Simulated assay, not measured.
Amino acid sequence: MSPSSARPASPPAPAVAVRVWDLPTRLFHLLLLSGVVALVVSGQIGGDLIVWHMRLGLAVGALLLFRLVWGVVGGRWSRWSRIVRGPLTVWRYLRGRTRPEDGLEIGHNPLGGGSVLAMMAVLLAQVGSGLVADDEIATTGPLYRFVSGDTALAATAWHTGDGKRLLLGLIALHVLAVLAHQLRGHALIGPMLSGDRWLPPGTPGSADGAAERLRALVLAAVCGLAAWWVGRLG
């Protein structure tokens, strides 16, 4: 067949808006960011704000519990199965040999997913240590009476020392990574706020209808009640 008789290649189909981040996940990100900033400020100032620091810690604990469960029952791209990647996928990503079926251009890439897990783990450690902490002045965590004095002191040292520094370092790295992606033309902030990304037609999106949002609301209420109950134990 001569080049003149060959059929021209079809132009690529225009991208369409695909719901990647469902509303509950987006609200979680905004509330967690606000809560962590308020925790850092109130913990640094201390004094009368320690009471609010404790309340904010319980609220952040409820948010983390919600996200852990939502990562199982939430929207497609909010699920842990789409965030936590297997070793072969991570290896291909590091070597620059990813495959379309890996779906790395849609949700978190393997390094971003690892960053999310690391921050979740450190935040859980901070909340857990705060629940049994003792500032040796006037404030103890609501679960302080269930642990030994040595355990409470060790938890307090972690909470105010290495744990705090590690968390701030991870947050700084996460912010720098987001800014680096923005500068390279891979917008992350806009899609995280709107929930949508422009992707090839046929890309599966996250379910984000009334039923999913009602399920998230019920789950959030249960997590909030659990945090309130823990706070009442003190």
Rank of each mutant, 00 (worst) to 15 (best):
K164C: 01
S206Y: 02
R145E: 07
G86F: 13
I50V: 15
V222D: 03
R213P: 00
R215G: 14
W70V: 09
L167I: 09
G46I: 05
L176Y: 09
L173W: 05
L193E: 10
Q126T: 07
G190N: 00
Y144L: 07
S129V: 11
T140V: 15
I171P: 03
E105T: 10
R55N: 13
A6F: 12
H181M: 15
L153N: 07
L30N: 10
L111A: 15
S10K: 13
R184D: 08
H174A: 13
H29R: 14
A226K: 06
G169E: 10
M119C: 07
V18T: 13
A121I: 08
G86V: 06
L58M: 15
A211H: 01
S2Y: 09
P191V: 09
A9C: 09
G185Y: 10
L58R: 05
A15R: 01
R7G: 06
L65K: 08
T140W: 08
L58V: 11
V122M: 02
V84E: 02
S78L: 01
V40T: 03
F66C: 00
A13D: 13
R26K: 06
L219S: 10
L131G: 02
V222I: 14
S4H: 15
V18Y: 04
V175F: 02
V72Q: 15
S81I: 03
R232T: 14
K164H: 08
G74Q: 01
P201W: 00
V122E: 01
L27Q: 07
Q182V: 04
T98D: 15
A13Y: 02
A17P: 04
G231V: 07
Y93H: 11
D208R: 03
G128A: 15
L117G: 04
M1F: 14
R19N: 06
L225V: 13
G163M: 01
G209W: 00
L188Q: 14
A220T: 09
G128Y: 12
R7C: 06
R55D: 12
A15C: 00
L49S: 10
L30S: 13
